[in-house]
Amino acid sequence: MSVLDEGAPRPGERPTFGARLGAAMDSHGPLCVGIDPHPGLLAAWGLGDDVDGLRRFALTVLDAVGGRVAAVKPQSALFERHGSAGVAVLEEVVAAGRDLGTLVVVDAKRGDIGSTMAAYADAYLRDGSPLAGDALTVSPFLGFGSLAPAVEAAAATGRGLFVLALTSNPEGAAVQHARDSAGVAVATRIAAEAGTLNRAEIDRSGASLGSVGLVVGATIGDAARRLDLDLEAVHGPLLAPGVGAQGAGPAELAAVFGTARQAVLASSSRGVLAAGPDPQRLREAARRGADEAAAALR
């Protein structure tokens, strides 16, 4: 069922994604738990690398942490690798997150131009689509303007976007740190575009957080400072992968984000998932992750 099925609020009546995420972070702490069913994790849980193992893994994670964390983030590719049956499991995760009252960020990193981007927006941001969670990760590297269909669809349905900006993979710097003829870095331009959209939304809604967030790796060091990128001026959520098993602890979170710390949604996947398959251990790992992130981001 859509979040706007009969009897649900109309789009204009629904709080913005930024407002809903801010409330969830206030209630549960600034942690987003990745649902990343890597083959190695499936094996570690005693599950097969097949659709049944995928489904048991994903729904066990969601049952354990749903209603207890600010958001979950299923990695679409790890569902897609199982074909149409795997995509159907992703649809189950989206629906279950909604039933549990937990925000779902679909990590699909979609990006294209024209009618193709419009089709992605229709698939992941349209009311009634089984793949439409609460937010979608998108890639702006065909030009920020190419994201217009997704920006418009998200605004119309009260959903959010997380735009890739400063990722922690070594290859990303060649594009994201590159400067134009005016000396402005690509990532800095992306952040400025997001900030413009968020300020307009905040002026309309009165929320304290806009709905167009950035993906900023928690292990990028002082990259934002070196690129003259003001993360606080984005006025939107900052999704920070790379927490826990991927290398960044509380101190790194504080150092990378500076005065924008209150907008950070720290993402942890393996740091929580390694505690499974026992649901209680998963809950405890998520609680520890949320508490550690909150302490670092004060």
Rank of each mutant, 00 (worst) to 15 (best):
S2D: 09
E6M: 10
A8V: 00
G12D: 14
G12E: 14
R14L: 15
M25H: 05
C32A: 12
C32Y: 07
V33L: 02
V33D: 05
A44P: 09
G46P: 03
D49Y: 02
D52L: 12
D52P: 15
G53H: 05
L54R: 01
L62G: 03
A64K: 07
V69S: 06
V72Q: 10
K73D: 03
K73T: 03
Q75T: 04
Q75L: 01
A77D: 01
L78T: 00
L78V: 00
L78Q: 01
E80P: 00
G83A: 02
A88T: 04
A88W: 00
L90S: 01
L103H: 02
V104S: 04
V104H: 05
V105G: 10
R110A: 09
G111I: 08
G111C: 10
D112S: 09
A118Y: 07
A119T: 15
Y120P: 14
Y120Q: 09
D122H: 12
D122R: 11
A123H: 06
Y124W: 07
R126Y: 03
G128C: 04
L131M: 13
F141L: 03
L142H: 10
G143P: 02
L147C: 08
V151W: 13
V151L: 14
E152A: 15
A154C: 08
T157H: 15
L161I: 12
L164G: 13
A165W: 12
S168G: 10
A174G: 14
A174P: 13
D180S: 08
R189W: 09
A192P: 13
E193N: 14
T196S: 15
L197Y: 00
N198M: 05
R199D: 15
E201R: 04
I202G: 11
R204I: 03
S205Q: 09
S205H: 11
S205C: 05
G210C: 02
V215Q: 12
T219K: 08
D222L: 03
D222N: 14
R226V: 01
L227C: 11
D228T: 00
L231I: 02
A233S: 15
A233I: 10
G236P: 12
G236D: 06
G236R: 04
A240T: 06
A240H: 04
A240V: 07
A245D: 11
Q246H: 11
A248H: 01
A248S: 12
A255F: 11
V256S: 07
T259G: 13
S267H: 08
S268D: 13
S268T: 02
R270D: 04
G271C: 04
L273G: 06
L273K: 05
P279S: 04
Q280M: 06
L282H: 08
R283F: 08
E292F: 08
A294Y: 06
A294Q: 13
A295C: 05
A296Q: 02
